[in-house]
């Protein structure tokens, strides 16, 4: 890999305590993220995908330190974020931004759009006061909003426009990495396409790196360079987009892919329908976490958790956590 590593996550864990009992002691933990490691290289888009409760959003928040991780390290440009004090962390924040599903949940409804952006600029104090409005208007233009909309209040905007404002706010500090947490999930298809195009354009224009968190595999396939599949707080498979969508080596990824409805009414295909629901992340299954829903389950899967591992016939960087992927898919490489 000649590309520069921007972010490295090592054995990241985030547990939420469950209080209970007589005195409100911690009786157990929701193991939302349970030891994940991966890297993000400069200028690429890496997606975290999985079903609800797999820990993808929590992982994103833990990486940005919006939640304090229970364990593990996050390195940003080889800087261990654990070792930073508050001041250093705040300076770093300007490089790392986040876009939410509903950006306006975190915005004061009594501020106009331009005020929201000016405030973001003020906090990091990188633009002199006199130039702030100018810079805010420039940002709005960048995300495709008009100057006459600048003095409107949040509720006057449609979903797509709101997301544009959320993007403008994230861009205001010239970040390097943007975490997109289900950023297009609430949007209608025609608007979603506009926002996806905007994200791609901005990535080129500003050399952005995206950590794209989504449950929508169609969108992920469109935007990502690499994909990380999560299940119950663990990583099941990591691969470049092409390998993942065409030569997946994990039964869970395969089931996930096969569950996406296809746009060909005439073509009825064989579908892997998983039975049951995702187990609780309080007491995840022993062994492979997917074994309770896997149709290829063996004794080993119930006993021992598989590590993420590479095999010879895989493209470099394609790893999967399954004891039996050679047996299952090894002969189908093509």
């Amino acid at each position: 890999m000649s590309k520069k590593e921007l972010l490295r996550v090592e054995d990241l864990k985030l547990y939420f305590p469950i209080k209970g009992g007589f005195l409100g002691r911690t009786v157990n933990h929701v193991k939302a993220v349970d030891g994940i490691s991966f890297s993000v290289f400069e200028g690429e888009t890496v997606s975290l995908v999985g079903e609800s409760g797999c820990g993808k959003s929590t992982a994103g928040r833990a990486i940005l330190r919006l939640e304090k991780p229970t364990g593990g390290e996050v390195y940003y440009e080889d800087l261990n974020m654990n070792s930073l004090n508050k001041q250093e962390l705040r300076t770093l924040r300007k490089d790392l931004q986040i876009i939410f599903q509903d950006p306006f949940a975190s915005i004061n409804p009594r501020q106009t759009v331009v005020q929201v952006l000016e405030e973001a600029l003020l906090i990091q104090n990188i633009v002199p006061r006199r130039q702030r409005r100018e810079r805010a208007l420039e940002l709005l233009d960048t995300v495709g909003l008009k100057e006459h909309q600048a003095d409107r209040y949040p509720h006057e905007f449609s979903g797509g426009q709101r997301q544009r404002i959320g993007i403008a706010r994230a861009l205001s500090l010239n970040p390097k990495l943007i975490v997109c947490d289900e950023a297009v999930s609430a949007l209608d298809v025609s608007i979603r396409a506009q926002i996806l195009n905007l994200l791609k354009r901005l990535q080129k224009e500003f050399q952005l790196t995206y950590l794209f968190i989504s449950h929508d595999l169609g969108v992920v396939r469109h935007i990502s360079d690499r994909v990380i599949v999560m299940y119950l707080g663990r990583i099941m498979e990591v691969a470049d987009k092409k390998s993942l969508f065409e030569k997946s080596r994990h039964p869970y990824t395969r089931a996930l892919l096969s569950a996406i409805p296809v746009l060909k009414p005439s073509q009825k295909r064989e579908r892997i329908v998983l039975t049951g629901d995702v187990p609780s992340s309080i007491n995840p299954p022993v062994g492979c976490r997917f074994h309770t829903r896997c149709s290829y389950v063996q004794d080993l899967c119930r006993a021992e958790e598989p590590e993420l591992r590479l095999t010879g016939d895989m493209k470099e960087g394609h790893v999967a956590a399954c004891h039996y992927f050679e047996e299952l898919y090894g002969d189908k490489v093509g």
Binding site: S158, S190, I191, R192, A193, L196, K200, G218, H222, L263
Partner: peptide, 24 residues
């Protein structure tokens, strides 16, 4: 047609999706 075009497609590698301009 616009709805179909704005969907991400796996069989066609498109850098840009054909979004429908404007909003409802």
């Amino acid at each position: 047609a616009g709805l179909f075009n704005s969907l991400p497609r796996h069989d066609l590698e498109k850098e840009e999706l054909e979004a429908i301009d404007g909003s409802v």
